[in-house]
Write a protein that binds this DNA or RNA. Structure first.
Length: 888
DNA sequence: AATATCACG
DNA sequence: ACGTACGTGATATTA
């Protein structure tokens, strides 16, 4: 049977434009959309081998749809000129490829395609429509399929009647009823307010069509009924607008649309003009002539890979090669690795790739693989092994022996690189490009686990690249003197973190609920008072509405603006508090609302029904300074500064009867680190004598003796110390202390006079950053600062402050990470039952059985204090109790 | 998806 | 003269 492909040119070229990075030829001509379109076209030709092709375009501004509804497609952004200039190029390219195209003033591409597809079907041809527009689904039939583009244009999802039934539970012709009810913002089709896809489908499943729905509104109630009655006409019109017109006078014959393959003599000059070198190279001009074999054409941009799917039959081959496996990759989806769904695993030697389906891995016969995974004496190389460990753990499988994690190494080599994906790293190292995960899986709601065929190949391609990347990383780590940091600190730490996360922290659910009730009643009281005083009810959580009440209605002075309107943050509200009693209530409300939503409700949602604990996920490859971060839930920002919030800590309890929570935190670790690296004598002296550092700073800055330092002076000195650590600026300090910039500048000058070594450090580190392009910590952790020489003052200043702060914050991070590794060793060596549960940047939290309280109270601060010998002592203070609140 | 706000070190 | 303190993550609202 002959096959006809109909392409919605506008839809595809738009998607190509936004999906592709900007691309211009040497003359400055934008070509990215044409490139994306062409790539897709060639792939279609190769895969579908069509006998006929036609590309339809929209023409002119006004179509017959505007006659009934002048706002049709209103509110759309104007087409960027970078795109509009590509339309003529696209038409030329189609002509050079011998592909027919058609447009007709007054009609949309949809209508042209609909018309031709009907004719194609009637003449006994198979039809495939390629578009990004779901409206097109209405023309689907047994012989007409619609391929919808997914995530850009790299992949399409074919829809026949069966797929529409599965996805929507509708017949193709009901798609217009769906649009009629839900509307379409992109075309400015109104639909019925309050009815989205969910509701629309429910109604259609019950009544079948817009007309039937409208005829039965008497059976409904509430807002929905009201909306349907009031907007019945909108619904009817919307349906009409979405309905394809099948009578377009198309001036193309079958002969015009026949496609006989791309001819080199015609196509090559055009491709040259566009400078599509890769396409020229890849095209061998034998592609796609109807019915002809397309043997060795490599239109496909991806390299071929061979993967062996591991099953009963192929297991012996893998078994044989297990000792030679050099790369493992576990794919899963879901942001939270504790709940992630495993998709598949690849095990690779440099020559061969094995794909292990998880169903098989769980079977009895696969236990040889499970044993291999759990054998700590077998070094594992992989990508994001931390995540792999957790995913496998919740499947009951142990992973051990992690030696090289490519993601973690990539983070160390450039912690600010936010594309540590395999395809991103491949690009960085100029290795062959592979499809990104987003291209293969889609993102957000479009995410879909692909067929095993596609998945296994994608993973194999990743593994292939990862093997190469790993070798390059080994060299680079060596060159950067980061071997110790990587192999002795970060790699062992990644195991420890995974173990802490699996262990989790017990949370007393009932107490948390009780606390929530107390917050709730206070919140209700505050809301009532606020609404009463304001004289109206509004959404207190909306800064916009709050701003209107405060500034427009009550006429309070505007202190600060955000880019969208009035600022109502705590700093502003505190200044406004004297003007009106309502402000304090709002501040109190804000505080409680935060506690309730984030810490009560948020935490409750994270308690595992399986373990009754929260299992956070420490991310080791995020923070630019080398710190950890914590997610799902974030256990590094549990309230402590305010008593109300601090109560949250009471619900974090030991997981075993009679045990205790023990917490130890470093005292002034950042300033001690600063004392060490700046070699400032005064600062070192202060820590050698274990002075109160803020008081000491106040003495020097204000030139007074210890007993003359009042609380206000100490507060200022503390702010100066913070400023120093952050990379000081007079403006920042003045904001913090609510003083003038001049006064702040004087403080800073005084500070530098007293601590000359610190001034020298600040100056030197900025020069070092300008010279090397990066700064580093004591353990050789790097952070590149490409903006350190920027001409823009703001950008440059930011980089300079970062240069000052990163070695301090980063070295502190190095130290506590070292302490964690040493602590883990000590616990194991001494056979202690105590468990490390949490890390909060300068604090470690443990759960400890009663008989180990004495030893742990000594051991923990000792190990933390000796983790990295500095020129000043490191001090860790320990405390304990029945819960985290008491361990303060 | 972006913005505002606020919790922590 | 320039205008921000350093590093994170979660929530609710709004576009």
């Amino acid at each position: 049977m002959e096959k006809l492909i109909l392409i919605d040119g506008n839809s595809i070229i738009y998607r190509a434009f936004f999906a592709m990075p900007p691309l211009t030829n040497s003359k400055g001509l934008h070509t990215n959309a044409v490139y994306g379109f062409t790539n897709m076209l060639l792939r279609l030709i190769q895969e579908e081998k069509p006998s006929h092709i036609l590309v339809a375009f929209d023409a002119g501004k006004e179509t017959f749809r505007h006659e009934g509804y002048k706002d049709y497609k209103g509110g759309r952004e104007k087409t960027p000129h970078e795109l509009s200039e590509q339309f003529p190029l696209m038409r030329e390219l189609l002509e050079s490829f011998g592909i027919a195209w058609f447009e007709l003033s007054g009609y949309e591409a949809d209508d042209i395609i609909g018309t031709i597809s009907k004719k194609g079907e009637e003449s006994g041809r198979q039809v495939l429509i390629v578009t990004g527009d779901k409206d097109m689904l209405q023309v689907v039939s047994d012989n007409v399929k619609v391929a919808l583009t997914r995530k850009g244009i790299s992949e399409v999802e074919p829809y026949g009647p069966k797929e529409i039934e599965e996805r929507y539970g509708l017949r193709p012709e009901q798609i217009i009823d769906l649009k009629g009810l839900m509307g379409d913002t992109s075309d400015n089709i109104p639909g019925v307010p309050g009815i989205g896809e969910k509701t629309a489908l429910k109604l259609l499943h019950q009544y079948g069509s817009v007309e039937e729905v409208l005829a039965h509104t008497d059976e409904m109630k509430g807002k929905m009924k009201e909306n349907l009655v009031n907007h019945a006409e909108d619904a009817r019109m919307s349906k009409k607008l979405a309905t394809i017109f099948y009578e377009v006078p198309v001036e193309r014959s079958w002969e015009d649309m026949a496609f006989a393959g791309v001819q080199e003599d015609k196509a090559a000059p055009m491709l040259h003009r566009l400078e599509f070198k890769s396409l020229l190279e890849r095209l061998d001009f034998t592609v796609g002539t109807a019915g002809e074999a397309t043997s060795d054409s490599n239109v496909q941009s991806l390299t071929e890979v061979d993967v062996t799917i591991v099953d009963t039959a192929t297991l012996p081959e893998l078994k044989e090669l297990l000792p030679q496996i050099e790369m493992m990759y576990v794919e899963s989806y879901g942001d939270n690795p504790h709940h992630a769904i495993a998709m598949g695993m690849t095990l690779s030697t440099p020559e061969r790739h094995f794909f292990v389906p998880f169903d098989f891995l769980k079977s009895k016969e696969a236990e040889v693989i499970v044993a291999w995974l759990g054998d700590a004496s077998v070094p594992k190389r992989g990508y994001d092994l931390h995540r792999a460990d957790l995913v496998l753990h919740w499947l009951g499988i142990t992973l051990a022996g992690e030696e090289h994690d490519v993601q973690l190494a990539a983070y160390l080599l450039d912690p600010t690189d936010n594309n540590q994906t395999t395809s991103g790293l491949a690009a960085k190292y100029k290795l062959p490009i592979i499809a990104s995960d987003e291209e293969v899986y889609g993102k957000g709601a479009k995410f879909k686990v692909p067929d095993q065929e596609i998945l296994s190949k994608h993973l194999a391609r990743k593994a292939q690249l990862l093997l190469q990347i790993m070798e390059l990383q080994r060299n680079e780590l060596e060159k950067n003197e980061m071997n110790r940091l990587f192999y002795e600190l970060e790699m062992p730490l990644s195991r420890i973190l995974a173990d802490m996360e699996k262990q989790g922290v017990a949370v007393n659910r009932d107490d948390l609920i009780q606390l929530g009730k107390e917050f709730e009643s206070q919140i209700a009281k505050l809301m009532k008072q606020i609404y009463e005083i304001a004289g109206l009810e509004f959404n207190l959580n909306s800064p916009k509405q709050l701003g209107e009440v405060l500034f427009d209605k009550l006429g309070m002075p505007v202190m600060k603006k955000t880019k969208t309107g009035y600022s109502t943050d705590a700093e502003v509200l505190e200044k406004l508090a004297p003007y009106h009693e309502i402000v304090q209530y709002i501040l109190d409300y804000r505080q409680l609302a935060k506690l309730q939503s984030t810490y009560v409700e948020g935490l409750l949602k994270e308690i595992s029904p399986i373990t009754g604990k929260v299992h956070t996920y420490y991310r080791q490859t995020i923070a630019a300074t080398g710190r950890l971060s914590s997610q799902f839930p974030n256990l590094q920002n549990i309230p402590i500064r305010m008593e109300e919030g601090r109560k949250i800590r009471k619900v974090f309890v030991p997981s075993e009867e009679g045990w205790f929570i023990l917490a130890a935190d470093y005292s002034q670790i950042e300033l001690r680190v600063l004392a060490h690296i700046s070699e400032d004598e005064g600062l070192q002296e202060a820590f050698l004598h274990d002075l109160d550092i803020h008081t000491k700073t106040a003495m020097d800055v204000f030139g007074v003796s210890a007993d003359q330092v009042d609380s206000n002076m100490r507060r200022s000195a503390k702010a100066v110390n913070f400023g120093i650590v952050y990379g000081i600026s007079d403006y920042g300090l003045s904001q913090n202390l609510n003083i003038t910039r001049k006064e702040a500048a004087q403080f800073i000058e005084k500070y530098f006079q007293a601590f000359g070594g610190v001034r020298r450090y600040m100056d030197d580190i900025v020069l070092e950053a300008k010279r090397d392009g990066y700064v580093k910590t004591l353990l050789e952790r790097r952070r590149y600062l490409p903006e350190i020489n920027a001409s823009n003052f703001n950008i440059r200043s930011f980089a300079e402050r970062t240069a000052m702060n990163t070695p301090i914050q980063g070295t502190a991070a190095d130290i506590i990470k070292l302490a964690m590794v040493l602590m883990d060793e000590a616990l194991k060596k001494q056979g202690l039952k105590s468990r490390m549960l949490l890390q909060v940047h300068d604090e470690l939290v443990f759960e400890v059985p009663p008989e180990e309280m004495d030893i742990m109270s000594k051991l923990v601060p000792e190990i933390m204090g000796q983790a990295l010998p500095l020129s000043v002592p490191l001090k860790a203070e320990v405390s304990s109790g029945l819960n985290w609140y008491e361990a303060k």
